[in-house]
Nucleic acid binder design. Structure first.
Length: 667
RNA sequence: GCCGGUGUAGCUCAGCUGGUAGAGCAACUGACUUGUAAUCAGUAGGUCGGGGGUUCAAGUCCCUUCACCGGCUCCA
């Protein structure tokens, strides 16, 4: 019995029985050695898979370790190796799931377990050591296809209730199980896997954490062990180095080192204190934004931080977001006023208040209200994270009230605005998501089907008109309307969700908003929420990490460091600094009696864009010697010329300093 | 909130199996007067996150509480 096999452009016959691996061998022995799995007629299978009897030509594509598919298999197999080692060391451990992670920059795989005793971080090296021992023994991964009842029986006998639950849900008829020879490990799994543990050469266990079974906080709390694996040791090491680099740009660390902001246990978790240097950056952000808002026809509004409790009953915040609202506060008892207030979790009801101060005509729409509104939300303590997740933050919030006809243009204008802002701050890569209703995801959506259809269409059209590629995500919409989210990719490839444009069917209803149309009849306006930075705190955090603290000139808290070489020059240095300050730039003078090298190092570590090194030569010629933080020494020039360069950089909001351009200016 | 870890000077950290605290940097003072990433010397600085307990004796062991870190859940 023979079967025809095709690899690449060649077709060869092979006599059965034979495995995928055998087939690859007759084409290319080296390839057969390198491959860790293969695709058989497009389906990923193990190398040990028996070739079926067929008159058709079997297409085989070997999967190599240096491909994404190969890496995924390596990571998945490493997760199994991890579980095997744990079972070996801690008999009686219950297994959850153990997938490969391909899009998480932090980890490459995990396995969720419930061990007979709580595991701690000190167990990780022990487990990893056992994994290495098992890897060295080249233990084969075996696959078997069996009836559902049989699989259930196996896992029931092994007392694996969670696995049984999975099998009940996933298997119909037959399913596949894997085991590793000479190990206590059996898993319910689709595969494929590497042929044997010897193929796993570069892995590392990284973290131990808690995880709920099926992500459900009412279910068992398991322990999750994270690790990563690569095809080669070099790749693993380079990944580990990159990880260290990412740690160095952690905004919490840089926030301290650069004196940008602080958080105080004794004043409250998740509450941000902006220091002068962080404040300088925030002021630039806000100034820029206000200018843009003015140009784009927004009205700036300012509203209180608290309001009567009933406002949030009308708005629906009390019923929909009860968990994230701070408890109500009361007037002092002796006042004898039975009023309850709440601190605001959102700005929208206030903007609605302004809208409702008088009857509105279609002629005044769209009305665009913008506010840098500070809101407070009762986030769980375990979720707080530096500037990224806080309990008090300022939104660059805006609400647009318009007619249904205007909404597409308004949404489009928001998207344009968002792109302009994000690009100005140096982001170049974007990922856009359109979140719409799910078919039947159990969520209770407000608004009629017709409203939703119109709204989704308006959002879609706005994106398509601009040829912006987007991903449509069903079931991710808020209960009150569909939305567009814009994510940016930072300088080390991480995605951050920043801007959002959202429809709201809920609030116009609840607050009974109206405008008088051309037909002299009342109509309900459409309301669009929109934030570009999202939260100013969070955006700031993302900026810190994106630039690793080396902000573009226009944002830098200190833009110029004036560094006199000796005390003799101090007076001249202060003169120079004052000129620069009066020209509108943030400047610092270092009058300490350090050597110039130390002063430069200091300024460099503070990531100050320009240093002026001033000695006797500069004083006599009334010039400045300019050093740029990245390009180094740029030579002498007249102070006025230097200030012109600064003005140019400031005005253009240049992201980076271009030496070429600078030298042209010199000539 | 849940699971694991951590909490020692402004910062980064050392302090073995319990014997009442140490380094580097920063700060301050003085000397040096310096040409593109760390000049030298000296001084000061801590009720070891808080509370309770075991012990003759606790930074070290136990309990509790707070905060932070890594995750999970959540994220309008």
């Amino acid at each position: 019995m023979e079967v025809n096999v095709k690899i690449g452009d060649l077709i060869k016959a092979i006599s059965l029985p034979a495995t995928v691996s055998d087939a690859i061998k007759i084409f290319d022995k080296e390839l057969a050695k390198k491959a860790i799995a293969a695709k058989l007629n497009g389906v990923e299978v193990d190398l040990y898979r028996e070739l079926p009897t067929t008159s058709e030509v079997l297409l085989i594509e070997p999967i190599l370790p240096d491909t994404r598919e190969g890496l995924e298999i390596i990571r998945h197999s490493t997760a199994h190796l991890l579980a095997a080692a744990i079972l070996d060391l801690f008999p009686g451990t219950k297994l959850g799931i153990g997938p490969a992670l391909m899009d998480d920059p932090r980890y490459g795989f995990f396995y969720d377990v419930i061990a007979p005793r709580q595991l701690t971080e000190t167990d990780l090296p022990v487990i990893e050591k056992r994994m290495r021992e098992m890897a060295k023994r080249n233990l084969p991964y075996r696959r078997e296809e069996v009836e559902k009842e049989k699989i259930l029986e196996i896992f029931k006998n092994r007392d694996e209730p969670l696995k049984c639950e999975l099998i009940e849900e996933k298997v119909e008829g037959k399913g596949s199980i894997y085991y590793i020879d000479n190990s206590p490990f059996i898993d319910f799994c689709l595969g494929p896997h590497v042929p044997h543990t010897g193929k796993l050469k570069a892995f590392k266990l990284l973290a131990l954490s808690g995880a709920y079974w099926k992500g459900d906080s009412s279910r068992e709390q398991m322990q999750r062990i994270y690790g990563n694996a690569f095809a080669t040791e070099e790749e693993l090491n380079s990944w580990l180095r990159q990880r260290e680099e990412a740690e160095k740009r952690d905004h919490r660390r840089l926030g301290k080192e650069l004196d940008l902001f602080s958080i105080h246990d004794e004043y409250g978790q998740g509450l941000i204190f902006w220091h002068p240097k962080g404040g300088a950056i925030r002021k630039e952000m806000e100034d820029y934004l206000r200018e843009e808002l003015q140009k784009r026809g927004y009205g700036m509004v300012f509203t209180p931080h608290i309001a009567k409790r009933q406002l949030w009953q009308i708005s629906g915040h009390e019923e929909n977001y009860a968990d994230s609202l701070f408890e109500p506060m009361r007037m002092p008892e002796k006042f004898n006023e039975e009023i309850e207030f709440r601190i605001k979790p959102m700005n929208c009801p206030f903007h609605i208040g302004i809208y409702k101060t008088k009857p509105r005509s279609y002629r005044e729409l769209p009305l665009r209200y913008a506010e840098l509104g500070t809101v407070y939300r009762a986030e769980l303590s375990g979720t707080l994270h530096g500037l990224m997740r806080v309990r008090g933050f300022t939104q660059d919030d805006a609400h647009i009230f318009c007619t249904p006809e205007q909404v597409e243009d308004e949404v489009g204008a928001c998207v344009d605005f968002a792109y302009d802002v994000l690009k100005t701050f140096g982001f170049e890569k974007f990922k856009v998501e359109l979140s719409v209703r799910g078919k039947s995801d159990g969520k209770h959506y407000l608004g009629s089907d017709a409203d939703w259809e119109k709204a989704e269409k308006a959002l879609m059209k706005a994106l398509e008109k601009r040829a912006i590629p987007y991903e449509r995500i069903e079931g991710e919409a808020a209960f009150y309307g569909p939305k567009i989210d814009i994510k940016v990719e930072d300088s080390i490839g991480r995605l951050w969700q920043l801007s959002t444009v959202q429809f709201d069917f809920n609030l116009p209803e609840r607050f009974e908003l109206e405008y008088i149309g051309e037909d002299n009849k009342p109509h309900r306006p459409v309301m669009v929420h929109r934030a570009l930075f999202g939260s100013i705190e969070r955006f700031f955090g993302v900026l810190i990490e994106h630039y690793a603290g080396a902000f573009p000139f226009w944002l830098s808290p200190i833009q110029v460091a004036v560094l006199p070489i000796t005390d003799r020059i101090n007076e001249y240095a202060q003169l120079v600094a004052e000129r620069i300050r009066q020209s509108g730039f943030r400047v610092e003078t270092n009058l300490r009696s350090d050597k110039i090298g130390a002063k430069i190092r200091d300024a460099q570590l503070q990531k100050i864009p320009f240093m002026l090194v001033l000695g006797d030569k500069e004083k006599e010629s009334e010039k400045v010697a300019v050093r740029e933080r990245r390009s180094g020494d740029l030579g002498q020039m007249r102070l006025d010329d230097f200030i012109k360069i600064l003005q140019n950089l400031k005005q253009s909001k240049a992201i980076s300093f271009d030496v070429e351009k600078f030298i042209e200016k010199e000539v």
